[in-house]
Design a protein around this nucleic acid. Structure first.
Lengths: 216, 216
DNA sequence: GTCTATAATCCGATAGAC
DNA sequence: GTCTATCGGATTATAGAC
């Protein structure tokens, strides 16, 4: 509480997550903080700058989830856990997830800060790391880890953002199943046959059998 | 020009595509149209309703691009052309593409109109049709066309939306190549071996060879 | 110097005259 | 159908209290 900026930012996150972007105003935030609106501008030069810090907080939270995935003890486990943690973050904090990818575009500053872009790149690097070690472990087929990681990330992000916008008529449990099934479908082509076998031992027997049939 | 609504909507699209959401105001729109602000409310009950019509126009434009893909003469050709037209629309009208998926969430009406959702479902149906006929033609592996279509759509949408947000450090030509390569990577698992061969004759020899090796 | 309240500006939307 | 006048609310710059 020594830093008023932190207090303001914390209240701003709460307000944003509760009321969304159109319900977010400096006056309302000031009421929540306990001061008058103009006082906020002593600590934050503009509403945009404040919202970008909200985005930064969301990135930190996502990072915590992803980092949990690193507790897995094998490349395979870390890979799967990371994918699940990414999904879990999106489902537990849907508004934060939207913030990460929509807010930076709506808030246009005179000189666009590279923070958001850098933080997005960090996610790319995280996936790159997961993919690279799975390639080294012959779980994923050899290739450019960046490219394969981008394919995986795009697939996950596309599914999640479409679901969060209501483009799929399923509930949360249904979407978790859909996410897993779609990911396994993608991994038929990206993974090595050994990994496909491993998947088959878990959930996707039918898919792997199809893959083996088609490949014979 | 007989219908003033059309004129207003046309100006609204131009204004939105030029200034974005935060630069869009009824007063500015009125200036562009050549009337005063209150006059607009004779034709559009609210700014939200007007913006939703802007979204509708963007969906129509996307539909025109997709429909062009139906000129292909084989399921395979229609499938590939549809994917390319989808990408071309996003690259030629990036702001419209963003509008389709971000604006409906920002504009919350008392009773959410099902137009946007229906139009999003129409895209899903379009992919479903493309996938189904490719399955019938043994180009894609047998399966649920809805699920496979969702995987393909999510992958394309994820790649495009991440690119439009600057998450990939590539220019437009680089992204087109990336989009194609990533799609081929996905199709290794979704397509039948025959289709992989066909792809190999076009661009992706290395990938298809890898797939054949891994499948042996 | 640091924080705060006042006031100017702009927006969406409405009411009533022409 | 359109304009003038206006309300309520929001952001932001300016000037004043501690």
């Amino acid at each position: 509480m020594t830093d008023p900026r932190e207090h303001i930012l914390s209240c701003a996150c709460d307000l944003y997550l509760e009321d969304g972007l159109e319900g977010f105003s400096m006056r309302k935030l000031a009421r929540a903080v306990g001061v008058t609106a103009p006082a906020l501008y002593r600590h934050y030069e503009s509403k945009e700058r404040l919202l970008l810090d909200v985005v930064g907080e969301a990135y930190k939270r996502l990072g915590e989830y992803l980092y949990r995935g690193l507790q897995g003890r094998t490349p395979d486990e870390r890979f799967r856990m990371a994918g699940e943690e990414y999904l879990t973050f999106a489902l537990e904090h849907p508004r934060m997830y939207e913030v990460l990818f929509t807010l930076p575009d709506l808030v246009r500053l005179p000189e666009p800060p590279e923070e958001a872009r850098d933080q997005a790149c960090a996610i790319g690097q995280f996936w790159n790391d997961r993919v690279r070690e799975c390639m080294d472990a012959a779980i994923l087929r050899a290739g450019d880890p960046d490219e394969v990681g981008q394919t995986l990330w795009a697939h996950a992000h596309g599914l999640i953002s479409l679901y969060l916008r209501g483009s799929f008529p399923v509930d949360e449990a249904g979407f978790r199943a859909m996410y897993g099934a779609s990911t396994r479908r993608l991994l038929i082509g990206l993974g090595t046959p050994q990994y496909g076998q491993h998947l088959g031992n878990r959930h996707g027997e039918d898919l792997v059998e199809e893959a083996s049939d088609a490949a014979s």
